[in-house]
């Protein structure tokens, strides 16, 4: 019972934080400079690991799928199989998980240390709202950069798959590209960009919430960092299932 009460009050507080950070958008002061700085550290800073993850994911997809495709004589659709699984599922989810690990932990550790060293109190005492100054720019930065990162992971992933197909299985690159091109529908791309927006929101909200609610000194900072990564990762995977379901029924109703 206690657990359920705690869970519900957590949900309530996160919703409240979301509301306050959204409210910070259409009433000044706005923090453009902070938002740009966060986009740089979150977006540009994560580009390397996200691309690397995408590259090897695309590679391993081909590595594992090609023998099966060959068995059914469908080698030519290797491009399609890599592109659809990357764009629909693996790109958004893996990118979000990598960013949750890299950025979510950094956000909650930074905000957590600021709580512990009373910098958040100082900020409020000096007349600034920490939600506006710290939370809103981080969430906005994640909402904008995560789709872009996902896009780059998808692209690099497809390229990685192509490279493996060519180098290991000797598949013609043109054939691979053609197959990928015809295999992807507009709905895949839309769905693949909607997901990271939601995931970005999850990472930002959860990490800021965990950071701002740090208790118990430096040990608490460690705890909230761990909890931020675990909670946002689990929520990303759960949300991915339901998002896929929603997108599926949405698109099958309108387009197909």
């Amino acid at each position: 019972m206690n657990f359920i009460a705690k869970f519900l009050s957590g949900v309530q507080e996160i919703t409240f934080l979301l509301w306050r950070s959204v409210k910070g958008l259409w009433k000044g002061p706005r923090y453009f400079k902070e938002t740009i700085a966060q986009m740089d550290s979150i977006g540009v800073g994560s580009l390397g690991i996200v691309s690397l993850t995408g590259f090897f994911t695309g590679g391993v997809l081909v590595l594992q799928a090609f023998p099966t495709l060959e068995y059914y004589g469908a080698q030519s659709s290797a491009g399609q199989s890599v592109a659809t699984s990357l764009i629909r599922e693996l790109g958004p989810v893996l990118t979000a998980l990598m960013v949750a690990g890299r950025v979510g932990s950094a956000i909650s550790a930074e905000l957590g240390s600021m709580v512990v060293s009373q910098q958040i109190d100082a900020m409020r005492a000096l007349g600034t709202s920490p939600v506006r100054k710290l939370v809103t720019p981080r969430i906005i930065a994640l909402l904008i950069t995560l789709p872009l990162l996902t896009f780059s992971a998808d692209l690099v992933g497809i390229a990685g798959g192509g490279l493996v197909a060519k180098q290991i299985y000797g598949l013609d690159t043109n054939l691979y590209i053609q197959s990928a091109k015809f295999g992807i529908a507009m709905t895949d791309i839309i769905g693949g960009m909607v997901k990271p927006i939601i995931f970005g929101g999850i990472i930002g909200l959860v990490s800021c919430y965990k950071g701002l609610n740090t208790k118990g000194g430096t040990v608490g900072v460690g705890r909230s960092t761990t909890s931020a990564v675990v909670t946002s990762s689990v929520n990303i995977i759960i949300a991915d299932f339901f998002l896929s379901k929603i997108l599926q029924s949405l698109f099958s109703a309108t387009i197909f």
Partner: peptide
Amino acid sequence: RKNIGMVFQEGALFDSLSVYENVAYRLHE
């Protein structure tokens, strides 16, 4: 709060800002 100055136990300076920026914080805001 604009009319209240607060001195915290350990100073509570913003780590990411220089001394100048810390002192100037309220005016920059």
